[in-house]
Design a protein around this nucleic acid. Structure first.
Lengths: 150, 150
DNA sequence: TGTATTTTTTAAAATCATTATCTTTTGGTA
DNA sequence: TACCAAAAGATAATGATTTTAAAAAATACA
């Protein structure tokens, strides 16, 4: 935890940005809620618990900054809000998501499933892939079990 | 063109919706601009050229309806607007996109590249896949050529 | 150390896409 | 013709995000 915070601090410094207390508080919230897919508002409310003086605009700016530095990924599941996800240490690619259309839960997949597909895209379309976003929409295990019961 | 309009008319009727003049005008714009990824506002302006009386809310309502009936796909490239894409005749899956991070161009891929990947997700994660969205971010052929020149 | 300069934060207002509301129109049907 | 429901139109409201202007904090540097 502290280690990752240090790393992020260095990343900021390398681009001559500072890890201000507000930024630190925001990053801490992200680290503590890595599994969730928080919206800016969610992050704001959580940061407020520890640092009540912070403003929503600051959270937005911080998330935007972290996003530019590729420390977090800004994602969009189609419900009018952007969500922010910490990138795993050393992950060069965006991770994938399984969104359940019944209960709305979001599961993450870390494995890189697209190695072959990327090769196809690069050769067939002459498109140099830098990153990708893949989301599956369907029914999660829990909801399938529920359906079976009824 | 007329053929596809007829089909869409039937799809609407099968759910007891009507193809009103406004809806027809909207669908025609979508058919005429299949390559583009129009925002609601774009569609509105184009429909207005032919049918100036139409209201923005009606366009939104129509796009929402078409989206529910899976006649169009509502997509989101992360710039605050939703875009609407006609689904290809008989396509059961969403198509993929190649977004160029240099020039912003968007190319479409119709092929289903994810057959194998979906199987893996279904067996490894017990997640019943209904649809997917895949977007690659990278550098398109034209921009690569430009880079080579310089 | 003191002061000027730059960066960052705040709070409030502005913006922009989208949705809701309310009234009017349309098209079918008794 | 009178009625009813679906749809459209106009516009206000909402909600997420961004911008702005002023204050505070950090930094540079004489």
């Amino acid at each position: 935890m502290e280690h990752r915070l240090e790393r992020i601090k260095k990343q900021l410094h390398s681009q001559s940005y500072k890890l201000t207390p507000q930024r630190e508080a925001t990053v801490r919230v992200l680290l503590e809620h890595e599994e969730d897919h928080l919206s800016a508002e969610d992050v704001y409310l959580l940061v407020k618990e520890k640092s009540p003086e912070i403003g929503l605009a600051t959270v937005y700016r911080t998330l935007e900054l972290l996003s530019e530095l590729k420390i977090v990924d800004k994602i969009n599941f189609g419900d009018g809000v952007s969500r922010y996800d910490l990138r795993k240490e050393g992950a060069e690619h965006f991770h994938h998501h399984l969104v359940c259309i019944e209960c709305g839960s979001v599961e993450e997949i870390e494995e890189d499933l697209l190695g072959d597909v990327e090769k196809i895209v690069e050769t067939e379309w002459q498109f140099k892939v830098k990153d990708h976003r893949l989301t599956f929409h369907g029914i999660c295990r829990k909801c399938q079990e529920k359906e079976d019961e009824s």
